[in-house]
Design a protein around this nucleic acid. Sequence first.
RNA 1: GUGGGUGUAGCUCAGUUGGUUAGAGCGUCGGACUGUGGCUCCGAAGGUCGCGGGUUCGAGCCCCGUUACCCACCCCA
Length: 428
Amino acid sequence: MASSNVQAPKGTVDMLPATARVWEHLQRVAQKMFSLYGYEPVYTPIFEHTDVFVRGIGEATDIVGKEMYTFLDKGNPPRSLTLRPEGTASIVRAALEHGLTANGQGAKLYYAGPMFRYERPQAGRQRQFWQIGVEALGMAEASADAEVIALLVRFFEATGIPHDRMRLLINSMGDDVCRPDYRAKIAAYIHAHASVLCEECGRRAETNPLRAFDCKNPGCHSVMASAPLLRDELCDECATHYGAVKAYLDHLGIAYEEDPSLVRGLDYYTRTVFEVQASGLGAQNAIGGGGRYDRLMEQYGGAPTPGLGWAVGFERILLALKAAGIEVPVRPVAEVFVARAVPEVAGDAFLITDSLRRAGVAAEIDHQARSLKSQFKSADRLGARFVVVVGPDEIATGQVTVRDMTAGTESRVEIRDLDTTIIDRLRG
RNA sequence: GUGGGUGUAGCUCAGUUGGUUAGAGCGUCGGACUGUGGCUCCGAAGGUCGCGGGUUCGAGCCCCGUUACCCACCCCA
């Protein structure tokens, strides 16, 4: 327990070095995968005009209804701004604002950073959390859906999460042609069974009837199991598109499960939706999810432009890796530790350290006037492969002692040859 | 927003039906080895027992309140 009376706000965490290093590793993995698939980075503001999220995500959603961090700024009149609760709305707004999809151009973009939602924290859920995501704009073909899904699956593979601890769920939510009819049909179904469904589902008939499918109430679950499925009510074009997506996934050998009850909570989704769940995470087991949003650009007043994408939660990837017992490779903090035997040679040791650093070697030195023994302990703890000992003897002869910490052997090296010798032994 | 659980050293946790100076392991620092890590041994530092009230001769332990964290509902990545 900290002795301090100041602490991070509820639902936020400090990422200390042990976690932050894993974070950077995951970001490197992501960037490498994204570049293989032709995605380019985009950084948008962490806050937007509130309207960007209200129009994009939908007024009736929980995110907009009760989870946004919204505030007024000091403008005259004040503007209503909101800390971003997700990434897609901002990316689409930016793409439209800067004409990235003008004249039918496509754009493949990725983003990474913190998102903010006012929710009750629990396992795998914080008020500030990290997402990394991709958006493919201007691409209507089913092959784009398959590529985006493939990238999601392959990214998770690259992080080290084992196959048998993940599953990919897919579904189609239809479009403007078939979804309204289906939605009305489900609302009618709910009304017809209102007496046996829970109150919440009764309300859902008006707000978002499709949500009744993933109601946790066992009674509702069994009643909804007999409800008509959107999969069987898709219009011809949606059915064709969905079939093509599945065919592409089959072709790529990507395993998936069709889940007719998979419903994304954000209003902007159309047609293909998907989610990857990982085992061992508790209640919040979705580590990534997304879908197609062919009408979103129009919501912002742009030309009709198809789009699709996904987001993954970094905290949950960490949980999944931990649950699977996967150790993320961590590089040593220092490759070389420069130890000084007596305080009088501190200047020489410092110069040697600086020279190694300028030569591209991660070199560390003690700044706490500790004993030689302690300096060796530090070197060991930092994972240093070599310790360079600097003392009066070394300065007098111009040869430092180099100890190989793995082999346990020592040799003398001319100071002027030290950088190249160390580099040869480290990289050779 | 609604439930349930838990707050004792930097970390993980003991702490008897309330009883004197609150403990262990790990970690940190020092020493054994006066210029050499990992193993071992010895020693040291480190604590408003979450916070505030109450009961009691006496509270880490009992009661009330409060706050934080955890887990679940809900929702989502």
